[in-house]
């Protein structure tokens, strides 16, 4: 099993004596935040209500649907199943932190658009964050592995087919981008879109 360099053991956050209002330091999408929160505040409410990062939706509110999936220190988590205090000293990446500095979409965002991998779009942020987590460990997944990785994310519109296609297309693009020196000089070659679709 390849080790993921982003998944080094995180350093533990500082100790906290018993408190009813905790001071937390959280980096969200590259911006450091210092806040005082009630211990019962859920991470998803912190992101949406305190920071205004409403790109992460609340779906089922019971930990089942995965719509609120974000990245916490390199691991996908359901942000309705994490307290904001548990993110103290940690780094959160949401769907809003994926685009490049120039606003260019992440390959997964582009692939979901190009493959028509959404209809209502409510599950999309969670789907993309869960797929991103898969591709960190497994850059060349099979359709079956994509389905397994997305088992915690529910979509009620698409029937999943185009979501799987989109993840496979994005994986292909990320592999090309990550390739040290593509053989035969692929510059200008058309971006893969439908070719990676499952049979």
């Amino acid at each position: 099993m390849a080790q993921n360099p982003m998944r080094d053991d995180p350093t533990p956050p500082p100790a906290l004596a018993r408190t009813s209002a905790a001071r937390i330091a959280v980096n969200v999408d590259g911006v450091a935040h210092l806040d005082e929160v009630e211990p019962r505040l859920l991470l998803v409410h912190y992101l949406r209500d305190r920071l205004g990062r409403t790109g992460t939706p609340i779906g089922c509110d019971t930990g089942n649907c995965g719509a609120c999936t974000v990245d916490l220190d390199g691991m996908s988590v359901k942000s309705c199943q994490v307290l904001a205090v548990q993110a103290d000293g940690r780094r959160v990446t949401t769907i809003q932190g994926l685009a490049g500095p120039d606003g260019a979409w992440h390959p997964l965002q582009r692939a979901f658009h190009e493959q028509h991998a959404l209809q209502c779009g409510y599950c999309t942020p969670g789907m993309i964050m869960a797929a991103r987590d898969l591709l960190k460990d497994n850059p060349d997944p099979t359709p079956e592995e994509v389905r397994d990785a997305l088992e915690g994310n529910l979509c009620r519109c698409t029937g999943y087919q185009n979501i799987v296609r989109a993840v496979l297309a994005a994986a292909a693009e990320l592999r090309r981008e990550g390739a040290p020196e593509p053989r035969g000089k692929a510059a200008g070659a058309p971006r893969a879109s439908g070719q990676e679709a499952p049979a």
Binding site: P12, L16, R40
Partner: peptide, 21 residues
Amino acid sequence: MIPATFDYARPQSTDEAVRVL
């Protein structure tokens, strides 16, 4: 759905955790 209020403690060792408990 929001939990009822509670206090929070984050010990850094097992001894400290047992003491807090």
